[in-house]
Structure formats: structure tokens, C-alpha cells
């Protein structure tokens, strides 16, 4: 067990160092959601009437950040597969699980930093949310980041080339983003769309984060969000660990 922790830390630091060397990339990674916040967010003011619109919009943007940011994590693995780094590490006694967890941890830390950046930008634009609510929201962000990054690595291991990985990724992420009600809440949706969205996990995470940002914690939406987040976490990490343990992975 101590070996897994130590190896995870070593792999985590290996992948974090390039980010620390190039902090500008950290901001660029959050540029797309930041632009949504700046150029699309203000449009919602009239839809929801006043400052409350940010409490609805910022949580959606946070989930979008995770969906795309962690979703793209697999590209880094494909580059390492091609350069032979993965194989070189697999010949060492390093824990196979650490090879996954170290990467996932790094992605999660980066996404958490970007999420904080977005919340700060939101506050500057007029977001008013209780600190506790933001903390709960960030907990959702972190849990989701671990899940999505793990799944992205599984997908990257299966496809092994950018050419196969990229189209598959966008085929999965775009409908999930739209059905999650990230830009506008699904409560505004017609019946069929509302039902459809309930079959996607992000719907519950977005709703739960919005509730938390409004200071409502002990609600059904937060409970459902937490349950979905945990199930997704267990399933994703299990799949990832199994894939990384497989001999020819």
C-alpha cells in the first residue's frame, strides 16, 4: 500500500512538473469556459432576472470545464504510449495502479486550480454564493474530474491513436454537455428532453452544484448528485485500474 502511495506521488510529480514550468498553459486550459463566462454569461441576466443568473451559470461552466478538461486527459497518455514512456515505466517495479492514479491526481489538481480561477472570475462578474456552497460545488468538481480523467485514460488505452480517440471523444462529450443542462437548466426543457437528460449523469451533478451555490445543501438534488458522483467515481476508477493492470495495456 505504501508503495502505491509513494509511486502515485512520483508519477503525479512527473506529470505536474511540466504544468508548473508553464503556468500560462494552466490559464489557457480554462480559456474556453472563461470565454463562456465573459461572453455568454451576461446574456442570462434577463433570463433569470438579476445577479441570481451567475449562481445558475457558474456551476454549469464548472462541470463543462471538467467534462472537456478531464476528457482530453487521454491525449497525454497517447503521446506517452507513442514515445515509449509508458512501456519504459511498466518494466520498472512501479505499481500499475500508480501509473493511473498519479496521472488522474495531476489532472484533478490542475482542474481544481482552474475551477477556482473560474469561480474568482464569476465573483468579479457578480456571482454571490455562500462559501460552503462553493466548497460543496468544488467537491463535485473534484470527484467528477477523477472519474472523467480515468475514463479518458481507458478510452485512450483502447484507441491508442489520436485519430481514433479524438472523434470518439467529441461524439461522447458534446451530447453529454448539452443533455447535462450546462448552459441553461434542464428545468426549462420540454418534457421529452427533460426525461432524456435524466439518463445522463451530468444532469444530476449540474443540478446539485447549482443547489449548493444557492446555499441549499440538504435537498434531494444534492443527495442525488452525490450518489451519482460516487457511483461514477467507483465505476470509472475500477475500469481504469483494471485496464492499467492488464498485461498488454
Amino acid at each position: 500500500m505504501s508503495q502505491i502511495v509513494r509511486d502515485t506521488y512520483l508519477i503525479f510529480m512527473r506529470h505536474l512538473r511540466p504544468t508548473l514550468r508553464n503556468k500560462v498553459a494552466l490559464v489557457f486550459g480554462a480559456l474556453q469556459p472563461l470565454l463562456y463566462l465573459l461572453l455568454f454569461g451576461p446574456l442570462l441576466k434577463d433570463v433569470f432576472g438579476g445577479g441570481g443568473s451567475w449562481q445558475v451559470f457558474v456551476p454549469g461552466i464548472l462541470i463543462q470545464l471538467v467534462l472537456f478538461g478531464a476528457g482530453f486527459a487521454g491525449f497525454g497518455l497517447i503521446a506517452d504510449l507513442r514515445s515509449g514512456v509508458v512501456e519504459r515505466l511498466r518494466v520498472t517495479p512501479v505499481s500499475r495502479v500508480a501509473l493511473l492514479l498519479g496521472r488522474v491526481l495531476r489532472d484533478t489538481v490542475v482542474l481544481a486550480a482552474q475551477a477556482l480561477l473560474l469561480v474568482a472570475a464569476g465573483v468579479a462578474l457578480g456571482l454571490r454564493a455562500p462559501v460552503g456552497g462553493v466548497v460543496v460545488g468544488l467537491a463535485f468538481v473534484v470527484t467528477l474530474a477523477v472519474s472523467i480523467a480515468s475514463l479518458s485514460y481507458v478510452l485512450a488505452m483502447m484507441t491508442r491513436t489520436e485519430d481514433a480517440f479524438a472523434p470518439l471523444l467529441s461524439t461522447v462529450t458534446l451530447p453529454l454537455m448539452l443533455l447535462g443542462g450546462i448552459l441553461l437548466p434542464m428545468s426549462m426543457a420540454p418534457g421529452w428532453l427533460d426525461v432524456l437528460s435524466r439518463f445522463t449523469p451530468f444532469r444530476y451533478l449540474v443540478d446539485a452544484t447549482r443547489e449548493a451555490f444557492q446555499g441549499h445543501y440538504a435537498t434531494a438534488a444534492v443527495g442525488q448528485g452525490a450518489a451519482v458522483a460516487l457511483v461514477l467515481l467507483v465505476v470509472s476508477v475500477t475500469l481504469g485500474v483494471r485496464r492499467f493492470r492488464r498485461e498488454n495495456a
Binding site: D7, G84, V85, E87, R88, T92, P93
Partner: peptide, 23 residues
């Protein structure tokens, strides 16, 4: 391995350090 096993952007010292720590 035939293709080697280093990341193009990672400094030589870091690669060696990581490898030594893993062993």
C-alpha cells in the same frame, strides 16, 4: 526498447531521477 522511452519535453535529469526513485 527499440523506440526508446523518454518524453521529448522532459529534462534528462528528471527522467533519470524518476527512474532511480521508482527502483
Amino acid at each position: 526498447a527499440q523506440t526508446g522511452g523518454t518524453d521529448p519535453a522532459t529534462p534528462v535529469g528528471e527522467e533519470l531521477e524518476l527512474q532511480a526513485r521508482l527502483y
